[in-house]
Nucleic acid binder design. Structure first.
Lengths: 144, 144
DNA sequence: TCCTATTTTAGAATTATTCCTAATATTATT
DNA sequence: AATAATATTAGGAATAATTCTAAAATAGGA
């Protein structure tokens, strides 16, 4: 178990508890995977990875764990078009950039810090910015 | 057939032709529905509405028509989370706001005209901003 | 330890969407 | 106008992500 996770566990437990949710082995495993590897995996990808450590785990459990973690605010969903939902344990406010060449998803700063500049009266409770195009590396390659 | 559509038809025909796509009765019907009613319908909703005028139309055709219209740039997809894709014939650059109270989708200006302010090297080819919260009307009601 | 509520699991169900195929319609060619 | 080539439609089957269900396992408190 990573040092980073160990340090976070009390916080995680508390944050789950605040939503009346227990920290189970499966939830810890899912959260640990998201911390360890910030490549924005899908539920199916997490399922494959999790089976290596908890062979009896089921895909439904992955979905349950993700739902619990999202509800408690420990994990964020990432939706890019209609592709399968991806998940992310980076809780700092940020947005996502999908590279059409290498298919990697980069965390990028939310433009203008989320000052949406809407007409008066709109109240924003949640925002999702999905950008797609070329990441710096692929853009560089393409120029050559 | 609405006056607005009639005026647009030559333009629509041309724009489809540029992608090698014909303007058929079904495609015209789907586009007309999107022009007439800018409530961001889903494919299923369009299917129900279309059946009233073209009873033999099939859901697959609605999807085909939407794909053709999107490919030719006449229609935009609107994705809010994992809800069914919605469609929109407003081609001016804009973003979407989903009201959690009345469930209406409003077109709003894309923040800062889409000047995303990313680190150097990122090239944006497409952007989607999905906001959710309360629209002015529901915000007003809630305050009372 | 026992009780109760929560969680996990496996598989079935659901649902949006895509794919496939045959029939039909449209366009270009003769 | 007849024919050939191509595009499109319709209907149903297929796919895939996600949710639901019910039974078994587990955790935490009395």
């Amino acid at each position: 178990m990573s040092c980073c996770l160990v340090k976070l566990l009390p916080k995680v437990t508390l944050q789950l508890a605040a939503s009346g949710i227990r920290l189970t082995k499966q939830r810890e495993e899912v959260f640990a995977m998201l911390l360890q590897n910030s490549d924005h995996p899908t539920a199916a990808e997490l399922f494959l990875r999790a089976k290596r450590r908890v062979p009896s785990i089921s895909l439904a459990t992955i979905y349950n764990c993700l739902e619990a973690l999202v509800d408690s605010g420990l994990v964020k969903e990432v939706n890019l078009g209609r592709a399968p939902t991806r998940y992310c344990a980076n809780l700092l406010e940020h947005s996502h950039f999908y590279c059409e060449s290498c298919r990697a998803i980069s965390d990028v700063e939310t433009p203008f810090g989320g000052a949406w500049n809407l007409p008066p009266g709109f109240v924003v409770s949640q925002a999702e910015v999905s950008l797609r195009g070329l990441c710096p590396r692929c853009h560089q390659k393409e120029k050559q």
